[in-house]
Amino acid sequence: MLRLLKNFFIILGNLFKKPRTVIYPREKIIIPDSSRGVLRLKLDLDSLEVICNGCGLCNIICPQDCIEVKKRIGDNGREVLDEFCLDLSKCIFCGNCVEFCEMNAIDMSYKYQLAEYSEKNLRLEKFELIKPSGTIRDFW
């Protein structure tokens, strides 16, 4: 009898609690700061240009060879980034490229909603990698 009463009060307490399920498409689960998502190219805040100078170290470091970098000589004789291509179908999100970058020019974003109908869309170009850096947590 005592056990029945005890169970009754446990259930009564649970009635007024918030449910544990996150209603996914409307609410988002908050992801910790250091979590690893898709690469993004950082922008210099003053001139709004890409910091990366196209040295190609990340291409050598990457265990799956998923990054392609090309550089060209700019107007004032300095080396400027020409093309930056990320193949998402090869990437394993290990984060070695961020660790080894000498310029601190790339970063891991929080973007994880990645599902595509065709394989061609998994290849991300330079302007798509810059886009998420404008806002930090809105682009989920």
Partner: peptide, 8 residues
């Protein structure tokens, strides 16, 4: 459908 990630 393709889902990239290791693991997603």
């Amino acid at each position: 459908m393709y889902i990239p990630g290791c693991p997603p």
